[in-house]
């Protein structure tokens, strides 16, 4: 009896983890953009985040001209933007509400408190000079959530689906974060290696909490390839795409061995395929073939993986 998990619960807990991870990463992206926008091309940089999230048309229709405050509001608090931090937390809370019989009381209560905080914020609370503090609070709230989950969430099937959602979202968001700098802020040839370029790369690393670790591996210099390679392929950096994929593999294996679930074949195949492609690449080959195209491919395959989980475990109709 205790071994069973409703398919709907599995899907909800998977998405609960994704929404919280997404909120954290959105805060990271906003934060790092704020850093980038301090150069003379501030306007263009706020454009970049809109393009990054494929929100150009939606943003245009709603706000017209792109300004820092508009972009920040759109991604932080806008109730009409399904991708805003506000809505990520709102969806996470709605899922958590449904999942209250499954998750710990502490998990629910903390998400509820975060939501109630966000709900009462006004646009001026996230204006540019307050943005960094806001992003910090969101990051902290999401990390508190992660810590409470780690320490209180009973580790039956639900925990596996939670972890899987978190790892998939983290891998996806990491590719987006790299894309900001490497594709959309593609520096002119003159800029490469300049002080500005270097400081932007280090800001990117910091936004992913990877700066100090990167320095331990690469004490000297800030080579763009090395940074991108670190963020994609490091086997020890907890946010690297490679680490996320290994986690997903072992979670899927755990569902089979610990809970005797019969499904999971599609998801395992898809994960193995992505993982093989990641392991076969070096950063040199990736850059030679086009980094943006590579990141895009990873993102598409992660969507395939989510669909495979839906078919294997969540009772989704298979196409």
């Amino acid at each position: 009896m205790s071994n069973l998990l409703l398919a709907r619960y599995a899907e909800y807990i998977f998405w609960l983890a994704r929404y919280m991870e997404r909120a954290e990463n959105l805060a990271r992206i906003l934060d790092v953009n704020e850093t980038f926008s301090r150069d003379s091309r501030g306007m263009r940089n706020w454009h970049s985040i809109v393009h990054l999230c494929n929100d150009g048309e939606r943003f245009q229709a709603r706000y017209g001209e792109v300004t820092g405050d508009k972009v920040i509001f759109f991604y932080a608090l806008d109730r009409d933007n399904s991708g805003s931090i506000f809505n990520c937390v709102k969806y996470a809370r709605e899922n958590a509400r449904t999942l209250r019989p499954l998750i710990s009381t502490e998990m629910w209560s903390q998400i509820n408190v975060v939501y109630n905080w966000l709900k009462d914020l006004r646009p001026e609370d996230v204006s540019q000079h307050r943005l960094s503090r806001f992003c910090d609070k969101v990051k902290q709230a999401c990390q508190t959530h992660a810590g409470i989950t780690e320490g209180t969430f009973y580790r039956d099937q639900g925990w596996y689906f939670y972890q899987m959602g978190k790892q998939i979202e983290r891998a996806d968001q990491m590719t987006r974060l790299i894309d900001i700098k490497y594709h959309l802020l593609l520096p002119s040839v003159d800029d490469v290696g300049s002080a500005l370029d270097t400081s932007q790369w280090s800001a990117l690393l910091r936004s992913a909490a990877g700066y100090h670790a990167f320095r331990r591996v690469h004490p000297r210099g800030m080579n763009p390839k090395a940074v991108a390679g670190f963020m994609l392929f490091s086997s020890r950096f907890p946010r690297s795409v490679s680490v996320c994929l290994h986690e997903i593999q072992s979670l899927l294996a755990g569902l089979r061995t610990s809970f005797n679930l019969r499904g999971g074949i599609h998801a395992s195949e898809t994960t193995d395929e992505i993982n093989a492609a990641v392991e076969a690449h070096t950063i040199d080959r990736v850059v030679a073939g086009g980094l943006h195209e590579y990141l895009d491919w990873v993102q598409c395959r992660l969507i395939d993986l989510t669909n495979a989980l839906g078919a294997d475990f969540f009772g989704a109709e298979t196409a």
Binding site: A7, R8, Q157, N260, F313, G315
Partner: peptide, 9 residues
């Protein structure tokens, strides 16, 4: 029956 991650129970 209920729909679970492991089919109908």
């Amino acid at each position: 029956y209920m729909k679970t991650t492991d089919g109908l129970a």
